[in-house]
Design a protein around this nucleic acid. Structure first.
Lengths: 215, 215
DNA sequence: TAGATTGTTAATCGATTAACAATC
DNA sequence: TAGATTGTTAATCGATTAACAATC
């Protein structure tokens, strides 16, 4: 189990993709797969797949390959999907509502415990049986409820304020949709979803050929 | 202008962040900045900043640093933000609506020209003055309107069908929010936003210490 | 001019790929 | 046993950092 002490971010970011493809294999009743076959489906090299998996243990068997069910379960465990997580969403606007309504997260074990906003028009409405609360009640709420993951869906200018409240209350993981970088202590993990950065890289690539003169 | 023929993805993904930070500097009326100062704000090394910028040209001046306005304009140009882009969204569910309502994209020059869905309950409703159309009309619409970027916000199972329609109609850039990998020809650019992958890396990191035994 | 800071080359670090002995 | 495929080491490739001459 204690294989390597530090897994690189490059490997970590590939893990969910392994889990997704293995899940698909399971659904198609495929019971075993070699790194070569998986390579052809998932688009990583066979060598990389073996390297990645060996960060966490010896899941394969020479001459046979990997047992799909076993590997799927192992990776799910590695990803921390054998437990549940409590979450709150701050910001009940478009993105906040979209995230709240994304039922897949619930299936994966992420339980939404509260939604907060400061807009009086939104306070009181119900999203998936959860009433939007005034953000002024957030600190109190976090004191009374153990929350694992704080989700920030407020505008850029208010994101740091919310992050500070999260940190103060002891939350150790923040999923940030605000287009800004948060300042948090070292032991707090931030995962950013910066939609405009994603869109801008798309527009860059769409123009790339032109930039350098259509070769 | 024709500096290097191929810019690495690592560099490209940093460009929007440069643009964002330079925009903030502009708003704070800062007119010049050295790679060292920018490094302290943005969190890249000064060396990396100079390397990155030099992929595209000599924007700085020895002994002085960079002119903020000039650099901001250059990077905006590099990102392709000096023109506008026409877009369509397929899928008027939660994410589709969130993306449609994200006014920032409009400001950056991304014009939403149409929204499509196959759910009769959604067809006909208006989102930001745009009536949701039946997805059966998509091919026709794309023939009559020049669209630069197709945005996929449909469930996983329907994403490839939409991608195929996009490709057939000549769209060269796809922004994909469906949790699946799309098959498209080489000359079509796909930018994925995989929310669950993002969330799973967060849960991985939240458990990391425990995985390897709390050292 | 002297100080500052770039642009750029060289050195280092890390990640990916290739190769192959071990072994099922 | 023979064939297949892993786990793992070594080689390569690419990205980041360091160093410094050029120059504003």
């Amino acid at each position: 189990m204690n294989k390597k002490t530090m897994i690189s971010m490059a490997v970590i970011r590939r893990l969910p993709k392994y889990q997704r493809y293995l899940g698909e294999l399971l659904n198609n009743d495929i019971t075993r797969i070699s790194s070569k076959e998986l390579s052809e489906r998932i688009g990583f090299t066979a060598s990389q797949i073996r390297q990645d998996l060996n960060c966490f243990g010896d899941f394969g068997q020479q001459g046979y390959g990997y047992n799909v069910r076993e590997l799927y379960d192992e990776i799910s465990k590695i990803l921390g999907l054998t437990r549940t997580y409590t979450t709150v969403i701050i910001g009940a606007g478009n993105i906040g509502q979209a995230v709240a309504n994304y039922s897949k997260f619930e299936k994966l074990g992420f339980e939404l415990k509260g939604i907060f906003d400061k807009n009086p028009k939104l306070i009181g409405i119900k999203i998936r049986d959860i009433e939007v609360k005034d953000v002024d009640e957030l600190s109190d709420f976090l004191e009374r409820n153990k929350i694992d993951i704080g989700i920030i869906c407020v505008p850029r200018t208010q994101a740091q304020v919310i992050a500070d409240i999260f940190v103060k209350s002891g939350i150790k993981a923040i999923w940030n949709f605000a287009p800004t970088d948060l300042n948090v202590p070292e032991d707090v993990i931030v995962e950013n979803v910066h939609l405009s950065e994603s869109l801008l890289t798309l527009s860059y690539r769409l123009n790339e050929a032109k930039l350098f003169g259509e070769e």
